[in-house]
Design a binder for these strands. Structure first.
Lengths: 140, 140
DNA sequence: CGGAATCCCCAAAGATACTG
DNA sequence: CAGTATCTTTGGGGATTCCG
């Protein structure tokens, strides 16, 4: 609504509604979110397990990510009122539906990260002419 | 170390080396990167077209994203030395291999964004008890 | 037109310490 | 063990300007 912009561009496979896609993408596109989903895709885990599995994530981000996912209905949080506090997080049905998309990303990452790294180096050497992108400055 | 988790879950595509996955994910997981890839998946576009299609992106981010993608070998940049400067960006073969993963994400987003929004609201109402997450203030 | 350089701001991410 | 509150830092990212 509002802005009825006429994009006379060539091939636009993108409806004007790319808005909500940005929204969702901005939310689940987050690296920690993806990693969390991926980690939980194997099965329910508790807080510490998640922190250990994703290792590199801070409690802040973990908690934040989990809460966000819970709000969105992607995961469930089950707290057992035991003496040693225990909370388990598990994917909901909705969350599971995301697995394929996330794994598609991670599988791609796993399959092409080497290629990417190679391209980076090549680019670094080839386009040095005026590349200021060469922040890599190999010293010298 | 203690990561000898026995995952008996359904789809586990998870090597312990989630490190490089984080790397790649952090790069393509960027919202603008995904949208750019998605936009280019329809075919080659020039700078202005991209800016118009993704609209909402600033030249800074667009340029930055394009450069990054070019460095990684996901897209190619072809500059035509014409009077009216013209530069076209197109996905490489590697870039195209990402399309399926990206579209998987966007399709999911398109299919479940409503559900997510609903869950958000429900969550907002249900857990109001002490929810500090309720920063939604719809501002009348 | 395409993009590089600069300024500036705010929000996000990390670390730490504390509590239930 | 699980989670929260606080402080600080960093840089992402928007707007503007100028150059090729």
């Amino acid at each position: 609504m509002a802005t009825a912009r006429k994009i006379s561009g060539p091939c636009q496979a993108w409806p004007d509604d790319s808005a909500f896609i940005r929204e969702v993408l901005d939310r689940i596109g987050d690296k920690w979110t993806m990693l969390t989903i991926a980690t939980l895709s194997a099965g329910p885990l508790r807080y510490s397990d998640l922190q250990a599995s994703i290792r590199g994530i801070s409690q802040r981000m973990l908690t934040q990510t989990l809460k966000q996912l819970e709000r969105d209905g992607l995961i469930t949080r089950t707290a057992y009122a035991e003496v040693p506090p225990r909370v388990e997080y598990a994917l909901t049905d909705l969350g599971r539906s995301l697995i394929e998309a996330v794994t598609a990303m991670t599988r791609w990452a796993a399959a092409h990260h080497t290629e990417i790294a190679a391209n980076r180096e090549a680019s670094d050497l080839t386009g040095v002419g005026r590349a200021k992108a060469a922040a890599e400055a190999p010293a010298d």
